[in-house]
Amino acid sequence: MQERRYWLKAAILTMGFALAATAFTPAQAGEKVTVFAAASLKNALDAINDEWRKESGGEATASYAASSALARQIEQGAPADIFISADLAWMDYLADKKLIKADTRSNLLGNRIVLVSANANAKAVEIKPGLDLAGLLGDGRLAMGAVDSVPAGKYGKAALEKLGIWPTVEQKVAGAESVRAALLLVSRGEAPYGIVYRTDAAADPGVKVAGTFPEDSHPPIIYPVAITADSRNADAAAYLEFVKSPKAAALFEAQGFTVSK
């Protein structure tokens, strides 16, 4: 009986040490950095995350969607460490709600918007005031991100308004949940033309750039980045620095982004 009590005490003591060891193990040790990034960043950021793993031994996992959807997910408590938006407005949205660490915010990248065609043999289009885009569309639709929320859609609408084209095509717009979804509509031949980022067009061999929108026809395309307010990941700051490093810059530029200096 005495021997049984001894082993029972020993077992309890061992279990207590095990639980104590678990309790005092840093919760963030080896945890993946979770990145919420605009859909247009997928190709470049996938390559950057591979390099981050090779250089640091750490892991980064990215969730890609429209900046609007990602910002709202963060607002609702989604566990993200880093947010990279395709426009300033959605980063401002989170900043106003104290959901990012303000001192980690910076402007990371720039981009251009282009008109893409599903037809690899399509003629070049000069994008200027008076362009008969409705005529080019015929009975088809103009694929673009949702113009009230998706950054690429907002940039596209602003450009079409500035050029006086919007009233002629407003009823022909096929609004998509993200810029990559809009790109897919064109690539699959479900829409004859679409407005996407230059970088998206370069990532899909199924489309051809028909024309590039003048830079002064829309607000500057800026991608800001920041660590989220709720992040407790010890690797988040190091990952952010890597994303802003010369090595990452080369990978962004290879996809057609411009890197903020």
Rank of each mutant, 00 (worst) to 15 (best):
T25V: 13
V179Q: 03
L251I: 06
D148V: 12
G30S: 13
L41D: 04
Y223I: 05
A122W: 06
E170A: 15
P79S: 09
A69S: 14
A18N: 11
A237I: 04
M15P: 05
L240F: 00
A95V: 10
S68K: 07
T14K: 08
P192A: 12
L131E: 02
D81K: 10
Q255D: 05
P220G: 08
S178C: 08
A120R: 08
A89I: 13
A249H: 02
A174K: 15
Y64F: 11
T228Q: 05
A158T: 06
K101T: 07
T61A: 15
A250H: 01
N107I: 09
K261I: 00
A248N: 00
R105V: 08
A210E: 02
K261W: 01
S187F: 07
A95Y: 13
L99K: 10
R72I: 09
T25S: 14
G140C: 08
A78D: 10
L99P: 06
I48C: 11
I227L: 04
T34I: 15
R180Y: 11
L160I: 05
K32H: 11
K154A: 07
V33W: 07
E3V: 15
D204E: 12
L8H: 11
G140L: 06
F36I: 09
G189V: 07
G140S: 09
E241S: 09
L109G: 03
A248L: 03
W7C: 07
N233T: 01
S63I: 14
I12M: 13
G194H: 06
S67H: 01
H218M: 01
W90F: 11
L13P: 04
T22V: 15
W166Y: 11
I227H: 00
M144P: 10
V169F: 02
M144V: 12
T228R: 01
G145P: 05
R141H: 10
D216Y: 00
A65N: 11
P79G: 12
G140T: 08
E75C: 11
V147S: 13
V186K: 03
A124Y: 06
A134M: 05
A201C: 05
T104N: 08
T14H: 08
E59F: 12
L88P: 08
L240P: 00
Q2K: 15
A118N: 15
F252E: 00
V125R: 02
I222R: 00
E59G: 10
K123P: 05
D96T: 11
S260M: 13
D50I: 14
G16F: 09
G206Q: 03
F17S: 14
E215M: 04
E3N: 13
T34Q: 14
P224Q: 01
I12E: 12
A10T: 14
V150N: 02
R72K: 14
G145E: 01
Y223C: 02
L137P: 08
E253V: 02
K54N: 14
G256T: 03
I221E: 01
S231L: 06
Q171Y: 11
L136D: 06
A10G: 14
P26Y: 05
E241Y: 03
I82K: 04
L183K: 02
F257K: 00
S63K: 14
P129Q: 06
N119L: 02
S260H: 08
R5Q: 15
F83M: 11
A248D: 00
F252K: 00
R198Q: 14
S149Y: 07
G156W: 02
K208D: 04
A39Y: 03
A124F: 08
G110N: 06
V169N: 01
K42L: 12
A62S: 14
L185V: 03
